[in-house]
């Protein structure tokens, strides 16, 4: 095997794309399935540990794994030559394969934008990394929480499209 073997690089980007995606969606599911339902049950004196210690660390892995997932995914699509067709959902190509991956890419991209442009900017204010009047924090936490729920919803068809691509 040559080091520059294009097939190997293709596999390598797919591997890194999937690893990053597990890190990203793993954190998303941790927030939605574990942390959010459990916080109200934590004794009040222990609760500050979540925003002070766990959230900043978890949000770092969450947003940067979202970034590396989309970067490796786009590189993969470029390398395989279907990026342009996938963006237009394969319309006119008569390829269910391209339409499927196109839907997956759009869902993933919406989720990535949600992380970087809605969840993270609002969480920075909620956690006090960016100063805002304290009375605004509940509203900003609500916006971030809803965006996180939207991503949980979208992750279900997104993973269907990504993992099911070989059925089409």
């Amino acid at each position: 095997m040559e080091l520059v073997d294009i097939t190997w690089w293709n596999f390598c980007f797919r591997w890194l794309h999937i690893l990053s995606g597990i890190m990203w969606i793993g954190h998303l599911y941790y927030f939605n399935f574990t942390q959010t339902p459990t916080v109200p049950k934590i004794p009040a004196e222990l609760r500050p540990a979540i925003p002070r210690f766990i959230m900043p660390e978890a949000l770092w892995w969450f947003r940067w794994s979202a970034m590396s997932t989309i970067v490796f995914g786009l590189l993969l699509a470029l390398m395989n030559g279907y990026l342009g067709q996938a963006i237009i959902l394969g319309i006119g190509s008569h390829s269910a394969h391209i339409t499927d991956i196109g839907f997956g890419m759009w869902l993933g991209t919406i989720m990535w934008a949600n992380v970087w442009f809605i969840i993270w900017p609002n969480q920075q204010k909620v956690l006090g990394m960016v100063e805002v009047p304290a009375d605004q924090r509940p509203r900003l936490a609500r916006i971030a929480g809803l965006a996180s729920r939207v991503n949980t919803l979208l992750s279900i068809p997104m993973v269907y499209c990504m993992a099911g691509v070989h059925f089409y």
Binding site: N32, F33, T36, P37, L89, G90, I91, S93, H94, S95, A96, I98, T99, D100, F103, L146, R149, V150, T152, L153, L154, S155, I156, P157, Y160, C161, Y168
Partner: peptide, 30 residues
């Protein structure tokens, strides 16, 4: 009316419904 996204169960159920819609769209487009 309560927001369905406030319920984790309803969020997941909507995710499955959206999956079915997208599968139908894939077949309709391709």
């Amino acid at each position: 009316m309560k927001n369905p996204l406030d319920s984790l169960g309803q969020t997941v159920a909507l995710g499955f419904v959206l999956t079915i819609v997208i599968v139908l769209l894939i077949h309709a487009i391709a």
